Simulated assay, not measured.
Amino acid sequence: MRVLILEDDGLIRDTVVIALRSAGLAVDAAACWHQAEMRLALNDYDCLVLDRVITDGDSADQLYELRRRGIAVPVMLLARSDDLHDRVAGFEAGADDYVAKPFATVELVHRVRALCRRRGSTRPAFLRVGDVELDAARRQVRRAGVLLTLTLKEFAVLERLMMRHPSVVSRTELIEHCWDEMADPVSNVVDVIIAQLRRKLGAPAVIATVRGVGYQMAPADPS
């Protein structure tokens, strides 16, 4: 899952970015709307976290324009005020969630993950492909009932592959949704994670390589 955070306070921005990345999310950051617009034009995000009032305007106004352009990605607004009028204005502009500062970082992370899952109702909390089960809410993966220990990145890649089953998922799509802009698109980071997943998931293999295209969840035929 990939998130864009817009916050002009460097300390708050860094705190949120670290917390979200520690929760296994890919995070890009912007300090102004110009930077945010550039990232929105280049990347597909599962959630936006927008500071309500920044140096170059009111994010509620900008959000309203995003909605007018048909951009339906879930949005959380951060605000220094919990005033009812401000909250209503934020929701009327198209926000899906509204959090007042100061906030508990752990709660913010859970709210962001919930918004990511909400997008298009395409990210269920529980996924099953063959004998592999993934519980997104508890961040647990089991194969044939056995609990596996995965890193955050391994979990994110497996979740994407299971969500898209039976489709083939390209390396580019995995990088776009499981890594942030710090990832080198020509590196072998995807291959490394896939190799680690195959080892941890064990035999028979459930992740197939489609040469020249990408990877696919391919559960073994029980017969």
Rank of each mutant, 00 (worst) to 15 (best):
R80W: 12
T105H: 07
V213L: 13
M38Q: 12
D83L: 14
D86T: 10
V168W: 07
D135P: 00
E37P: 03
L50Q: 04
R113N: 10
R119M: 09
F155I: 06
R123Q: 05
P219V: 07
P124V: 05
A89L: 12
L77Y: 03
L161A: 04
E176N: 01
G120K: 02
A19N: 03
P102E: 14
S121F: 12
C116K: 02
R198Y: 02
P185H: 02
R211G: 13
V106K: 14
Q196I: 08
L84I: 11
R119G: 06
H85E: 15
A205S: 12
L115S: 07
T55A: 15
Y98C: 09
H177Q: 13
C178Q: 01
L127M: 08
A95P: 06
L50M: 08
V49M: 12
L197G: 00
R128E: 12
V27L: 15
D28S: 04
E133N: 06
V192L: 11
L158T: 01
R164C: 09
L152F: 14
A100P: 04
F126T: 08
R2L: 10
L77A: 06
V192G: 09
M162N: 06
D83I: 07
R143F: 13
K153E: 11
A60I: 08
V190L: 03
L127I: 03
L134K: 00
D82F: 08
T149F: 14
C178I: 00
A19I: 00
